[in-house]
Structure formats: structure tokens, C-alpha cells
């Protein structure tokens, strides 16, 4: 795994899948078209501002609500490489990892409160370190659970070969 670098789009807690990608678009099968509606329910400017490699930083329980995999897909195709939040809703987390769409990175509540919008972050996945280049600060990320790390390294669940059990 490598080092990721990008700019922050910051949101509050309980960002649900209905605001990440509203229900009316769930019939859309083209991921690029889905991306044009990413975060529409909470930030109508998001798709204009986002650049490839950017990060979403959000409060607790990111991605709560529906099982729609359209949510991490819409974020991925809008350019988001990772979402950083103190906690994630379980289906969003699974979808992000198993579908290999983006990295759900758990950070502390303190780090969440200190990172601001438009900050430039550098994430060292190998060492679990997040550098805030805009503020000269650094934070640690919670290590991925073993199975999650293996699935990420395999490039998604479809490519993952479980150990014999």
C-alpha cells in the first residue's frame, strides 16, 4: 500500500446514504452518472469542488442507512480515495472494502475535530500515519482489522482467497 495525498471535504456526523446518493438515482447503472449526484443531499457544490484523490472527512456513523453500494461507488467515481471518520455504519464499511471502492479509515474524534475543510492530508497506510500538511500536525489512524486488510490488499472480496478454515 502506498501514500495517498489529497484535499479534505469536511462534513458532520451521521452522513446517511440518502444524502450521499438520493434514492431516486438508484436505478442508474452508470457509475459516472451516479458520481454527478454524489453528496447532493448535503452539499450541492461537492461535485464542482472535488478533485481526483481527495478525501471526505466526516463525523461518527458515516454511511448509515441503506445498503446501496451506489454510495461508495458515487464517491469513488467523483474522485474520493478515502473517507476518514471516527466510526462507520457497517454496510457502508463492508461495501467500501469488499467492493474495493475506497478506503474507510477510522480516526479519533480529536483528529476529526482538528482537520478542517480544504486541508491537505498525506496518509501513510503502511505506518498508519496521517500528516496534515496544511497545519503541520499528524494523527494516527486505527489499523484495519486483519480480514479487512487482507481484502484491501487483494483488491476486493472477489479477488480474496480465504485461508483454509
Amino acid at each position: 500500500m502506498t501514500i495517498l495525498r489529497g484535499r479534505v471535504h469536511k462534513y458532520g456526523a451521521n452522513i446517511d446514504t440518502d444524502v450521499i446518493i438520493p434514492g431516486a438515482y438508484l436505478k442508474e447503472m452508470d457509475p459516472k452518472k451516479l458520481a454527478t449526484h454524489a453528496m447532493e443531499g448535503v452539499d450541492s457544490e461537492f461535485t464542482k469542488k472535488v478533485k481526483p484523490g481527495d478525501f471526505v472527512v466526516a463525523g461518527r456513523n458515516f454511511g448509515c442507512g441503506s445498503s446501496r453500494e451506489h454510495a461508495p461507488i458515487a464517491l469513488k467515481y467523483s474522485g474520493i480515495k478515502a473517507v476518514l471518520a471516527p466510526t462507520f455504519a457497517r454496510i457502508f464499511y463492508r461495501n467500501a472494502v469488499d467492493g474495493s471502492h475506497l478506503l474507510p479509515i477510522e480516526i479519533t474524534d480529536d483528529a476529526y475535530s482538528k482537520i478542517e475543510k480544504d486541508d491537505e492530508l498525506e496518509i501513510d497506510l503502511q505506518n498508519g500515519q496521517i500528516k496534515n500538511l496544511s497545519r503541520g500536525a499528524s494523527y494516527t489512524m486505527k489499523p484495519f482489522p486483519d480480514i479487512v486488510l487482507k481484502i484491501i490488499q487483494a483488491g476486493g472480496l472477489m479477488n480474496y482467497k480465504p485461508d483454509k478454515h
Partner: peptide
């Protein structure tokens, strides 16, 4: 348990899935 379509596709192919 509810899951996304990647996980469901995996179950349809393998009949198994990971759980914590």
C-alpha cells in the same frame, strides 16, 4: 443481514461470506 451487491454476488457464487 443486509449487504451490498458485491457481497451478495460473492454469496451467489460461493455460498459463504465473512462475518464478524
Amino acid at each position: 443481514v443486509g449487504m451490498g451487491h458485491t457481497d451478495v454476488a460473492y454469496v451467489m457464487l460461493n455460498g459463504t461470506i465473512w462475518f464478524r
